[in-house]
């Protein structure tokens, strides 16, 4: 088991290293300098030049990579070209809003998916199962930005029940106010993630249901509910945990779009505007840290697998 673990750890390290290298190379193949002098603003060209010098954009490539890497290890992700402040600081300022949106969305989508997925699997081939199956396919096919626009059109304008933008009406807004602002972006996120989780959960539960011990349990006359909670879900939890861990990129992309559409003051919107403005240090840091986060969560999922699944534990 230790060997498998070390092997996976080693692989993760390689992936992380590759991610830094690729991110760095992508950024350095960028043609020209960022911060094109903008004719619609009145920039002093000499100031722009001096300012670029301050950013230390010059130097030989490998040396730059190494110094960038060593700064990364010290937690220095560089300075935003637009805000002229540390990227990490800018990201941390926006993290709470993003968590406030994504964590409930994640829990809600997963909770719904687990209940619906189990229910559908138990009635495999039935009307409800087929409806949910088609529905989740449709959910996967919905462009989230379009869904957001339609939601805003319907529930902020057509029926002006819900706010169209932001996180709070006033600085001292009640949490209720924030929750009301949360509804539309949350819905947007949940629809996509639910469809995704639902399909996995259903497959996972189906796989468990086809096992012999379920047939035995049924033969022993246990109630359906008891079987589900005592046998099915614990056994299906492994693939579900994996999927949950692996869905991080999906959740991330979802948040990007939801924050952009509903002017949510989180990391996603900042990333979009930084990308559009070619704020290279920000783009670099964000690509790097999300990729690293995903790699680590993959590793954690593997770890969980090892810890939970006895077969794997003894194989090594």
């Amino acid at each position: 088991m230790i060997r498998i673990l070390l092997n996976r750890l080693w692989q993760t390290v390689i992936v992380l290293f590759g991610v830094t290298l690729i991110t760095f190379l992508i950024m350095h193949s960028a043609p020209g300098h960022p911060l094109q002098a903008n004719p619609e603003l009145r920039l002093d060209p000499t100031a722009v030049e001096r300012w670029l010098e301050l950013q230390e954009l010059d130097g030989p490539l490998p040396a730059q990579y190494l110094s960038w890497l060593s700064r990364l290890f010290r937690g220095d992700f560089g300075m935003s070209l637009i805000y002229n402040r540390p990227v990490l600081e800018l990201a941390l300022e926006r993290l709470p809003a993003t968590l406030f949106l994504t964590v409930p969305a994640f829990l809600l989508a997963l909770g719904l998916a687990i209940s619906c997925g189990t229910w559908a699997a138990l009635r495999q081939g039935g009307f409800g199962d087929r409806l949910l199956g088609l529905g989740s396919l449709a959910g996967l096919s919905l462009p989230s930005f379009w869904l957001g626009i339609i939601l805003m059109m319907l529930f902020s304008y057509g029926y002006p029940w819900l706010p169209a933008a932001g996180m709070r009406t006033a600085e001292d807004s009640s949490v209720l106010d924030i929750l009301i602002h949360l509804i539309l972006p949350l819905t947007m996120l949940v629809v996509g993630s639910f469809s995704y989780y639902f399909r996995y959960v259903r497959y996972a539960v189906l796989a468990v249901l086809s096992q012999d011990f379920i047939k035995i349990a049924r033969a022993r006359g246990f109630t359906e509910l008891y079987i589900v909670f005592r046998y099915v879900l614990p056994n299906a939890s492994l693939p579900i945990v994996t999927v949950a861990a692996l869905s991080l990129p999906l959740l991330f992309t979802g948040a990007l779009v939801a924050e952009y559409v509903f002017s949510w003051p989180g990391i996603g919107r900042w990333i979009i505007s930084s990308t559009l403005a070619r704020d290279y240090p920000v783009i670099m840091a964000v690509n790097l840290s999300t990729a690293a986060l995903v790699a680590l969560s993959n590793f954690l999922a593997d770890l969980l697998y090892l810890l939970i699944d006895p077969r794997l534990r003894f194989k090594a």
């Binding site: 902020s156 304008y157 002006p160 706010p163 933008a165 932001g166 559409v261 002017s263 003051p265 919107r269």
Partner: peptide
């Protein structure tokens, strides 16, 4: 003065119409 940042210009008008 509460200066609220809303990049989406349609959302701005919707919020104005809603009195917010």
């Amino acid at each position: 003065i509460y200066y609220r940042i809303i990049p989406n210009i349609e959302a701005q008008v919707i919020e104005l119409l809603a009195g917010k």
